[in-house]
Amino acid sequence: MNLCWTTLPQNLKLTRHGCDRGVGMNGAGIFGAIFARDVRLAWSQGGTGTMALSFFLIAVTLFPFGVGPEPQTLARIAAGVIWVVALLACLLSLDRLYQADYEDGSLDDLALSPLGLTGVAAAKILAHWVATILPLVALSPVLGMLMNLDGDAYGMLLLSLLIGTPALSLIGSVGAALTVSVRRGGVLMSLLVLPLYVPTLIFGVGAIDAAAGMTDALPHLAFLGAVTLVALVIGPVASAAALRLSLE
């Protein structure tokens, strides 16, 4: 398909790659352009990047108020709290992953690109993970400090979040795509996606607890990686199928 990609809304600047002469971009170029646009949007005014980060920080600091400030109690629940709140922050920020593009029609445009909807979904998922989730991971040691996380577990906190959170973006993308045409689909999306997050949560927290208890964290990490790989296979394809459905 030889489409010109100069007319995409929301400042999708594709002209640099030769599209201005009416030559269609190749798949990698479009992938990069969508990725760059979504990252920029996430960190522009009103984007999800800063909001998810603030939510992550505020929601974790609520827990000491709820369970009390005793250091032992906080240390015991630190890994679980950080993982659960990271998961919720991811869910909140995924809400409109496709919705804005669906509403203003750019998703129809993207669907016709040589990249295909699966590639479009993959680019948007990657952008979501890099722009929204990676900052959460980077901030997590600070929250570990607030929650009095065991000193031996900081490396594992970062590692388990790095390995596990891509699965959250990938699976969440399927939920976002399925509910893209539903008005206020956020609540429905949580219902669809949260049960599927359970294995990631279990193995992610398991790895950190294992590191804090000085036992072998490798089995947990291996399972965590397996879940992410399965999500990597399913996520973009299922998202694309769901998007195709709502574009009909």
Binding site: L178, L192, L196, V230, A242, L245, S246
Partner: peptide
């Protein structure tokens, strides 16, 4: 459409 969307979800959930 509802049925096919739910079907996609069911296949993802079968994992």
């Amino acid at each position: 459409k509802a049925g096919r969307a739910a079907s996609i979800l069911a296949l993802v959930g079968v994992v």
